[in-house]
């Protein structure tokens, strides 16, 4: 009877031995390779520090001008541009400028990294069904595993700081861009691809001239999602030493400071909305061929 009510689990001794074994193995791994990995990521760290310093050292009116300029370049809409500039002015007035710049720095670098790594992976996935069936479960794990769980090995390997924070953000934020790049390329009309084949396009010419351009709307939706997810990781990243708007939020949680939490939380929301609107309207503008006409 006991056999049925109690699940026949491994004994406590076996289990703790197993866990210790894994921990020791990983510790050994991080002792051997930790430094090499840190060196590997050093250029990234230097760039991140440089970018953050640049944002902080630039006089705020210039930053506002640049924000306005980028918003206009992306969206061509006065509404969005004014909204972005006003949001940053309000952020400045409430004394969150420095934290916002730090967050902006890490989000920009994380997004850039995700695009640089994610789009090629997405293309790879689109080209082979085997790659797709290999990578899809990895993406599923990356999106569903609680962030704290993968924070543990990342911190064990690289310690606390900007780079592990950046990696944590990227692990969480990269799946959408990979998935949507893959999807976008797979959705390209077979008739159009056949035409490209018939004219003797090489695989590279097909990719760059037909597949990627026609997948752009989906790729842009992926970039948009990636930015949003990166922003939502700001608070968790601050737990492992990333400066920015997450730090005061974390302090607010542990001390029950309602106003502080709300202010910084809303600043994150403002950033998210600005990124979202600008990148979406840029994505739409890229597809001039979809406007008007017979379809």
């Amino acid at each position: 009877m006991e056999f049925l009510t109690e699940f026949p689990a491994l004994g406590r001794k076996t289990l703790s031995g197993l866990k210790r074994g894994v921990d020791e193995a990983f510790k050994g791994f991080s002792r051997t390779y930790g430094e090499a990995l840190e060196n590997f990521f050093d250029p990234l760290l230097q760039f991140l520090i440089w970018f953050e310093k640049l944002l902080l050292a630039t006089p705020w009116p210039i930053i506002l001008l640049v924000i306005g300029g980028l918003s206009w370049a992306g969206s061509r809409s006065w509404k969005i541009t004014t909204g972005a500039v006003v949001a940053f002015i309000v952020i400045g007035i409430f004394d969150m400028w420095e934290d916002t710049m730090a967050t902006l720095a890490i989000i920009s670098v994380a997004t850039f990294l995700c695009i640089a790594v994610g789009i090629p992976i997405g293309i790879l996935m689109a080209r082979s069904n085997r790659m797709q069936s290999l990578i899809t479960p990895v993406l599923d794990v990356m999106q569903t595993i609680p962030s704290f769980v993968y924070l543990i090995p990342v911190v064990m390997l690289l310690g606390i700081g900007k780079v592990p924070g950046l990696l944590a953000v990227c692990i969480y934020a990269i799946p959408p861009i990979v998935r949507l790049t893959n999807l976008g390329i797979r959705l390209v009309d077979a008739d159009v691809l056949e035409a490209a084949d018939a004219f003797g396009a090489s695989p590279r010419q097909k990719l760059m001239g037909v597949q990627v351009p026609l997948a752009l709307p989906n790729i842009f939706a992926g970039i948009n999602q990636t930015i949003m997810m990166a922003l939502s990781m700001v608070v968790i990243a601050s737990m492992i030493g990333v400066k920015g708007l997450g730090v005061p939020v974390l302090r607010a949680i542990s001390n029950q400071y309602l106003a502080l939490g709300l202010m910084n939380g809303l600043a994150i929301v403002a950033l998210a909305i600005i990124f979202d609107r600008v990148s979406q309207s840029y994505g739409k503008r890229l597809q001039a061929h979809r406007h008007g006409g017979h379809r």
């Binding site: 009309d189 008739d191 159009v192 056949e194 035409a195 490209a196 084949d197 018939a198 004219f199 003797g200 396009a201 090489s202 001239g209 037909v210 351009p213 026609l214 597809q287 061929h289 979809r290």
Partner: peptide, 22 residues
């Protein structure tokens, strides 16, 4: 084969097969 498709043959399709972004 690509060379043949580029220089010797060209094709017109029932569903046109035009590149919509161009």
């Amino acid at each position: 084969l690509r060379e043949v498709r580029r220089r010797k043959t060209s094709m017109v399709f029932q569903k046109f097969g035009l590149l919509p972004h161009r």
